Computed example of a mutant assay.
Amino acid sequence: MMEMMDFLMQYKWLIVIIAEILFLVFAGLFFIMRYWFRKNAVGFAFIILLILNELFLAFLAIYDYLQTGTLDSFQIITAIFYIYLIFEGKKDFKRLDHYFKKKVASWKGETVPDLQTSESAVEKKYGRAHAKEEREGWYIHLVIFVIAQIVFWNIDNFTGWQDFNLT
């Protein structure tokens, strides 16, 4: 068991690259099964594989931290990826879902579904309501930025900052 964990730690960056390729493959197979072949259950199986793939990467990052005891770029990049998944991933996946639904219907010569009705159900905001929504998004980005800067500051401990002379 330890040999396998040592192997995983030795090749962790290669494993991340392979896992990201698998992410794209599983997502693509999900859309193909769902819209081309109309096999939703099989498509759902690929979503499960996609989630397991991402959980494996989280496990790998946690195990790496437990082994080294230090926070390094591997864990930071993994954390940034999960922050993206939490805040923007679902919205982007829905956009991809709508895109592939339209594209496959167009390729198959079927009527292209009108997805504007479902999108227009979310009422567009104007004026103060729109400004409030924009501010909330900006605040989220600001918090993420500050957290990332604190993490980088604690990891780097200001080493190398003297190289940035602004005068």
Rank of each mutant, 00 (worst) to 15 (best):
Lys108Ile: 07
Lys90Leu: 10
Phe93Ile: 09
Val104Leu: 00
Asp72Met: 13
Leu96Asn: 06
Thr78Tyr: 04
Gly109Ser: 07
Thr117Asp: 11
Lys124Met: 10
Gln75Arg: 07
Pro113Phe: 01
Tyr63Ser: 15
Ala131Asp: 00
Phe81Glu: 07
Phe87Glu: 01
Ala131Pro: 00
Leu49Pro: 00
Phe59Lys: 08
Lys103Asn: 03
Phe46Cys: 11
Met33Leu: 12
Lys94His: 07
Ala41Glu: 15
Lys102Leu: 02
Phe74Gln: 03
Gln116Val: 06
Ala105Ser: 12
His98Tyr: 09
Tyr99Gln: 02
Met33His: 12
Val42Leu: 14
His130Pro: 01
Asp97Cys: 05
Trp107Ala: 06
Asn53His: 05
Leu66Ile: 06
Glu54Ser: 12
Thr78Phe: 04
Lys90Glu: 09
Lys94Trp: 04
Lys90Phe: 11
Gly43Cys: 04
Thr111His: 05
Phe56His: 12
Thr111Tyr: 05
Ser73Phe: 14
Ile51Pro: 06
Phe37Glu: 07
Asp114Ala: 03
Glu133Ser: 06
Gly127Gln: 00
Glu88Met: 09
Lys94Ile: 08
Thr68Asp: 03
Pro113Leu: 01
Gly89Thr: 05
Tyr63Trp: 13
Ala121Gly: 08
Ala79Ser: 11
Asn53Pro: 08
Lys94Ala: 08
Lys125Thr: 11
Phe100Gln: 01
Glu54Tyr: 08
Phe56Met: 13
Ile51Phe: 12
Ile76Pro: 01
Phe81Met: 04
Gly127Ile: 00
Phe81Leu: 09
Ser73Val: 13
Glu88Val: 06
Ala45Tyr: 14
Leu115Tyr: 06
Leu85Cys: 11
Phe46Trp: 14
His130Phe: 01
Gln67Met: 11
Arg38Gly: 04
Phe46Asp: 05
Arg135Lys: 10
Trp107Phe: 12
Ala58Glu: 07
Ile80Asp: 09
Tyr84Cys: 04
Phe100Tyr: 08
Thr70Ala: 14
Tyr84Ala: 09
Tyr35Phe: 15
Asp92Glu: 12
Thr70Leu: 13
Asp64Phe: 03
Asp72Pro: 01
Tyr65Ile: 05
Phe44Leu: 14
Thr111Pro: 03
Phe44His: 13
Leu85Gln: 11
Phe74Trp: 10
Phe93Ser: 09
Arg135Thr: 07
Ala129Ser: 05
Tyr65Arg: 04
Tyr126Trp: 08
Gln67Phe: 02
Gln75Met: 13
Glu119Lys: 14
Arg38Tyr: 06
Asp97Ile: 03
Thr68Tyr: 04
Arg135Glu: 05
Tyr82Gln: 01
Ala79Gln: 01
Ile48Phe: 15
Tyr82Phe: 13
Glu119Arg: 13
Met33Val: 02
Lys39Leu: 13
Ala58Thr: 11
Asn40Val: 13
Tyr84Gly: 04
Gly127Thr: 01
Tyr126Ile: 07
Asp64Tyr: 07
Glu123Pro: 08
Ile80Gly: 10
Phe93His: 08
Phe46Gly: 05
Gly69Cys: 00
Leu52Glu: 06
Lys101Asp: 05
Phe100Arg: 00
Thr70Tyr: 14
Leu66Pro: 02
Lys90His: 09
Arg34Phe: 10
Ala61Val: 07
Trp36Tyr: 15
Arg95Asn: 07
Val104Ile: 12
Tyr84Thr: 05
Phe74Arg: 04
Phe87Lys: 00
Ser120Ile: 10
Phe87Asn: 03
Glu54Leu: 13
Leu49His: 06
His130Thr: 00
